[in-house]
Design a protein around this nucleic acid. Structure first.
Lengths: 235, 235
DNA sequence: CGGCATCCGTGACGATACTG
DNA sequence: CAGTATCGTCACGGATGCCG
């Protein structure tokens, strides 16, 4: 029996603040629950639906699907079908979506002091520490890719060049090796590698510890040959 | 009959993302609907409940009260009772709350390109344009208070000194005349006054137009005697 | 009158089950 | 694997009432 129900207005017509204000307009697009965390995930590169769902513990499947659809509609995200070998599709940020990096960065910096104890219910992923670390590595003069090793896993960030984080319009002005500001897992080509523990990583993010200081104190171990590694080592 | 109901768990127990991540922790505190817009209002200075309700069209009374209570609990807001003559109380941001300025600023900058046409349902307040203008005025070397006149009303911003917006921890590094980054209405003591229309104001916020250029083109009229006014005039 | 609290209707959210 | 369907619950928006 073909049950006939209304499609339930599934498209979740966006609830607008209806204010002629740049901030309110932003929040119309990214103010919904989970939206900015999806951006955080996609800043690490293209992801499949299942990967997103795995790295966003607590989001329900329908909300994730709905958000992705909304974000695609708003021009923040594109959905790309991978070539035949891999029968899957991935979501990735548009330039407009990547432009949210300064927002995420500001949020991460503001939230860093509140990131003290890890509650038993808290999930963790290594690449969640990429945003705070970006600020600490942004002051480097040499540009390049830094691979970061934590106990919780590894990720990599595009460091140096300055202004990639606080900066303005596009994501221009960094290394061309990576399409994104950071990524999960090991780097395809890393110019430097650092290993540190969570405490040091958090202190760097909070600005309580400078990279130079951390290297001197032995809280950060550096490896690599290029000028970027040398700069991290040398201060 | 004294009806006995459970207090209905009024305190709106905060729904946490439960992620050990600085961004997620931030969103735990300011990710709820209306919260960041309340911060936007309070960045203009201390406000009474009724004023907040008037400048946040669409928010319901109970949600506003609930948010203010939550924000007070989170340490973003304090409630201060005014001295007897005025039998009222005002809400104002704590230092921690003021630290959200870079977040609001980043959101405003990202949303500026989307602020094109004004829809008929859109509300407007003059001081909503303070945040975008802050970026344009932040490059000035002389610090001071600029009073801004729009057709929609007037407001004032603390300009110059640089880094007050993109910068880091506190709100330090500006003028001491104002406790806040900007304010509604005319300034108590203005070092310069500018008059412009909405189009010019939006173009400045979008970065399509520099202040120098706007002054040259006559889209911004400057008045005032001090060095700050001279710098705005001169470029 | 300012500052909420209460009631109510709608819809967004979260969890689970299910399907192409 | 990538979502859709269903459902209970709660948050939101609007109006109204209360109380100092």
């Amino acid at each position: 029996m073909p049950r006939q129900q209304q499609p339930a207005a599934r498209s979740s017509r966006r609830r607008s603040y209806d204010q002629f204000c740049a901030t309110a307009r932003s929040l119309d697009l990214v103010g919904d629950r989970w939206t900015l965390l999806i951006v955080r995930e996609l800043l690490a590169g293209a992801r499949r639906y299942t990967d997103l769902h795995a790295d966003l513990p607590g989001v329900s499947t329908d909300v994730l699907a709905s958000r992705l659809k909304d974000m695609e509609h708003s021009g923040l995200v594109t959905r790309r079908r991978l070539p035949p070998p891999a029968a899957a599709s991935v979501y990735e940020l548009t330039d407009r979506g990547r432009g949210l990096l300064p927002v995420l960065s500001a949020l991460a910096e503001w939230g860093a002091p509140a990131l003290t104890e890890r509650r038993p219910t808290d999930a963790v992923r290594a690449h969640w520490f990429a945003l705070p670390l970006l600020r600490a590595l942004d002051g480097l003069t040499h540009a390049g890719v830094v691979e970061v090793h934590l106990d919780e896993g590894e990720f990599h960030v595009r460091a140096g060049g300055g202004g990639a984080v606080a900066g303005g319009a596009g994501g221009a002005g960094g290394v061309e090796d990576l399409p994104t500001a950071y990524g999960d897992g090991p780097a395809p080509r890393a110019d430097a590698r650092i290993a540190l523990d969570i405490e040091a990583c958090l202190a760097l993010g909070r600005g309580e510890l400078t990279l130079t200081q951390a290297v001197e104190d032995g809280r950060v171990e550096v490896s690599g040959e290029g000028p970027l590694a040398a700069e991290i080592r040398g201060g």
